[in-house]
Amino acid sequence: MIKAFIVVNNHAMVRLCRFYEQLAVDKQSELCQTVYKIVTSRPDHLCSFVDDSNTFGPDTKLVYRHFATLYFCILSDRSESELAMLDLIQVYVETLDRVFENVCELDLIFNSPKAYTVLDETVVGGLVLEINSQKILTVYDQLQKLEKMHSSLIDKLQVGS
């Protein structure tokens, strides 16, 4: 099971985080900072896995991937395959790329709800829901349409009244 999905940039700013295990808010940001420190201290040619029970406790491993200015990090328990986690990050980034057309950090800042929606269509409650980027995109588009339709309906109603 995935315990947390964190996207953090080169300067320790958390761009997106989702915790699938209950954790107090201060612990959450503490954990994000810990993850940041670990991933930024590892050059790119090292492996993408960190298994450090002193830091994360037992049964937790960190899998991360570095894209441009962002680190995509997954904390999961031992029941998840490391390579599968790497794939998951790949799929997520691919999907974001299609949603935003050449995704960059700014997209995550200004459109974080969209990024969350994509994540929620990929991972649910710490478990992988879908790993086909096209399928995720289809669902995502439907949702966007739905949202727009309702919004415009509401706006019209409000303006009318």
């Binding site: 029970s53 994360f56 037992p58």
Partner: peptide, 11 residues
């Protein structure tokens, strides 16, 4: 004192 208090033992 792990961050995630996990009940399962390390397998």
């Amino acid at each position: 004192d792990s961050i995630f208090a996990s009940e399962r033992a390390p397998v």
